[in-house]
Design a protein around this nucleic acid. Structure first.
Lengths: 227, 227
DNA sequence: AAACTAAACGGACCACGGTCCGATTGGCCC
DNA sequence: GGGCCAATCGGACCGTGGTCCGTTTAGTTT
């Protein structure tokens, strides 16, 4: 887990799954080094079986057919266990995306330039968006299905991490701007539902969307001309 | 109805509520002059009662407590009738927002400058965003509750209308840019869930968000400096 | 005004997300 | 090994969104 606090606390009574609701977009805290912390043997086994079952169902019938009961049945486990482990449906789907998310985060933090460190910040930002657009091209159905409700959409850990990264880069490029707001705007361009709309509904080709990203970065990181 | 095709077709067998899924962001078609077209007397009466009932429930207990059954019961009408009339829950909530939406559209099309016609396009664009931000400050709960699923989020009629307006203005300001993409980006800044996050979760003050809009418009409508 | 028909009605019905709580069991201490 | 207890389990249960289809009724035709 490169991002903090995601599916790690022992889940007090039953449904807690607390995301640290205080939002501190400044720092991208890494915390929680090991995966599932001290899960009881049966719990860990069931978790694995559930993820496997869910993955199988997604592969076979698509993300929209993954009901909690079906996953429980496929994993030969009670329905309550699924909810206990993953909180809710979006939690389960998010856990399914966790692997590629971690890989992506690792590539951003320690991978080769220009996505990873080494390149100038604006280059990194451009590479970041392109990489995210491409990742979402696969996974899109799952990402859409895993989208949390409007109230929590921008608060969840993976998004906060990614936005935090964008924020850091922006601060280096345009330190005088309101970088929090700019980061939010940039990240929205990469939002799964937006990607879905542009490519699947409007039918925009991928290269146009990618060019749009590069252009957006240019426009947002330009400093005022005169005035 | 200033926007086209929204809750107007006679709803063939049962659940149709077809939005014209072809997306033509170029023109903002006004169509459908009169309100509910040729609705049978009982249907029209029930529709009004349902809207009244829903409005009352929202006012009393908040949008989240508005269940379809509760509305049906309050209006003394069968549950099936609610779905027949409004398609689904988001349709009902959207209908509740329809009045202010129409007013807003009217202000944009025929109202006084700078929101309405007369002012230079960039001024209009800035005024547009500020007005929308302020409108969403009220209504926010309802707008969040009325948000359609990720697949349809950007396809619904009111959003398409607003985006079409932004598009027209953008074309006048930066004709050489990819205005569809820029319009999408601008509209996302005004998205209810985004507003919710910035103001209610991050706690940003309204004037910061408004300044952010003005800045965003400036940055996006700047033409390339040199290169 | 009687007959006719398409539309609207309404509530039983279903599927799914989410919760509860009594039964079970893994891990630890003696 | 035996006993203890907290964590886990699992499936009955509930509320809500959404559907179906037999029944009723508004509007029209003759």
């Amino acid at each position: 887990m490169l991002y903090a606090g995601f599916m790690s606390a022992p889940l007090p009574p039953f449904p807690s799954h607390e995301e640290p609701s205080a939002d501190a977009p400044e720092l991208l805290q890494l915390g929680s080094p090991d995966d599932e912390p001290c899960l009881r043997a049966d719990a860990a086994r069931n978790r694995a079986r559930l993820l496997e079952a869910a993955g199988k169902l997604v592969a076979e019938h698509g993300a929209s057919c993954v009901t909690m009961e079906a996953v429980a049945a496929e994993a030969k486990v009670g329905k309550g266990t699924v909810f206990r482990r993953f909180g809710d449906r979006t939690g389960l789907l998010a856990a399914l995306l966790d692997h590629t998310e971690k890989k992506f985060q690792a590539a951003v933090i320690t991978g080769p330039a220009p996505l990873g460190p080494g390149a100038p910040p604006q280059e990194r930002l451009k590479a970041f968006g392109l990489a995210l657009l491409r990742r979402s091209a696969d996974e899109l159905d799952l990402q859409l299905a895993a989208e949390p409700s409007a109230e929590r959409r921008y608060s969840n850990a993976p998004r906060r991490f990614l936005r935090g990264h964008v924020l850091i880069l922006l601060r280096q490029i345009v330190p005088d701007a309101d970088c929090e707001l700019l980061a939010l705007t940039l990240m929205q361009y990469l939002d799964p539902s937006m990607i879905h709309y542009r490519t699947r509904i409007c039918g925009m080709p991928a290269d146009r969307v990618e060019a749009g990203w590069l252009d957006l970065v240019d426009r947002l990181t330009r400093t005022a001309p005169s005035a």
